[in-house]
């Protein structure tokens, strides 16, 4: 059994309406040091198997196919095996 984490964020240059709104809200609370904020998605998975390279490859496929939309989103994945 391996645990995996996937972070999905909008690509650079894609306007993130949620991120912009949260950024404005933080600024209105006085957190002027916040210069950029992007809202993304975080997923935790449990995967059967031990072969880390293989699991990373499979998880990359899952991201490309379903978990992320490669037109507008980037993903990062980590597998602890």
């Amino acid at each position: 059994m391996a645990r995996a984490r996937v972070h999905i964020t909008f690509k650079e240059g894609i306007l993130d309406p949620q991120g912009k709104t949260v950024l404005r809200a933080l600024k209105s609370l006085g957190y002027d040091e916040v210069e950029e904020l992007r809202v993304g998605k975080y997923m935790e998975l449990e995967l059967a198997g031990e072969d880390r390279a293989r699991l990373e490859e499979r998880l990359g496929e899952m991201c490309e196919k379903l978990l992320a939309n490669p037109i507008i989103e980037d993903y990062d994945l980590e597998v602890d095996a």
């Binding site: 909008f10 306007l15 949620q18 939309n69 507008i72």
Partner: peptide, 15 residues
């Protein structure tokens, strides 16, 4: 999403 048309949808700008 199926790739039958080009592009992608995002949240409305006004949320």
């Amino acid at each position: 999403e199926a790739g039958l048309l080009p592009g992608a949808m995002m949240r409305n700008v006004g949320l």
